[in-house]
Amino acid sequence: MFLARVYVTLKPTVNDPQGKTILGGLKTLGFDLATEVRAGKYLEIKLSSPERTLAEAAVEEMCRKLLANPVIESYRYEVEEVIPRS
């Protein structure tokens, strides 16, 4: 069994009003060190696959087809083998 952690983020050229608003909130709380926030999505996907390469290929295709919109977003992921809980 594998666990994929998928990170979907806005491309650097795309404006992120959510991130700006969150940054404003952090500033209000006194976190003056914060200079920029980019909000994105984090997904955990469990895969039942006999081997890592198969799992990775599936996650890559998931990202391309559905999880990220290539017009505005980029993605990256990590695939880790996990022991299923009995």
Binding site: V14, N15, P17, Q18, T21, V71, I72
Partner: peptide, 17 residues
């Protein structure tokens, strides 16, 4: 239609949220 690639571009969260 944009998601389907039948029209170019994307529609994002309103800038004022």
């Amino acid at each position: 239609l944009c998601e389907a690639g039948m029209l170019p571009g994307a529609l994002m969260r309103n800038d004022h949220l």
